[in-house]
């Protein structure tokens, strides 16, 4: 249908107005898009297609978590209680704050406030870095307690919790080895999430540099907007990781 209509309108503009057709280069309106709105929507659409592949990527890990949590629930509950809720909760708040400043950065870019945009991007980076730092503290604690899956994994705290002052039901040695599955998924999921954040922090460095140059405060918002989509997506992954990994069963003894 549309093709027919197009055929009745030969593209005469290019020929007739060749001499008055100046090439004004606007990054927010490249010449193969009819309007700025069309270009913007095409960009947003492409970014979302990428994020859909990310949903599938993380989705596979969430699914394996779902299956193993149901199969080895006791081991998962006990292992989950080894994680620190204060640290995990703080990290959730830190990440939400980081996302908040990223949202403000989009607004600053749209309102063409260069100084405020750079400040917002720097604050996004700051809170993102704090998140990675807290994650590092948590990883280090697991390293010291031999709770990293592998040859040196130690199930002592799960087989004999009372000796370590932990108020949990002891697991049989066979069941206790299943806590390795929990920690494998914990390190896999939080690790891939952290890698996404580090990639994001790398891109942020580049965005801060360009924002400081004034690239995004003259009407061209797309890079800030699309990066914000990525950053918020990574936030959403954590919003699910936190309750699923840290808060499985926080009232032991039932």
């Amino acid at each position: 249908m549309d093709n027919v209509i197009q055929a009745t309108h030969p593209p005469t503009h290019a020929i007739d107005h060749a001499e008055e057709h100046e090439h004004v280069f606007l990054p927010q309106h490249l010449h193969h898009f009819a309007t700025e709105e069309q270009q913007r929507e095409a960009g947003t659409f492409g970014m979302w297609l990428f994020l859909l592949t990310e949903i599938m990527f993380f989705g596979g890990m969430f699914f394996s978590y779902l299956v193993y949590r149901n199969w080895y629930y006791d081991a998962f509950a006990v292992a989950s209680n080894q994680l620190s809720v204060p640290l995990g909760g703080t990290n959730t708040a830190v990440l939400i704050t980081s996302g908040f400043f990223m949202a403000l950065a989009v607004w600053a870019s749209e309102m063409r406030k260069k100084g405020f945009l750079v400040i917002c991007l720097l604050l996004t980076m700051l809170f993102g870095t704090v998140f990675i730092g807290i994650k590092g503290v948590e990883y280090h604690e697991k390293w010291e307690k031999h709770h990293i899956p592998g040859a040196h994994f130690d199930t002592a705290e799960f087989v004999n919790p009372h000796a370590y002052g932990i108020n949990e039901e002891p697991l049989s040695p066979a069941a206790a080895t299943k806590t390795q599955l929990f920690f494998s998924l914990y390190f896999l999921m939080t690790g891939i999430h952290a890698i996404h954040m580090m990639i994001g922090l790398g891109i942020l460095v580049w965005l801060v540099f360009r924002a400081h140059r004034g690239d995004f405060t003259a009407g061209y918002v797309a890079p800030i907007e699309n990066f914000a989509l990525y950053w918020h997506f990574v936030d959403i992954v954590w919003l699910f990781l936190f309750p699923l990994l840290y808060l499985i069963n926080r009232h032991p003894g039932r």
């Binding site: 709105e37 913007r40 929507e41 949202a103 403000l104």
Partner: peptide, 9 residues
């Protein structure tokens, strides 16, 4: 194509 809607702080 949606208008560029600016969400406020």
């Amino acid at each position: 194509h949606a208008e560029h809607h600016i969400v406020t702080p």
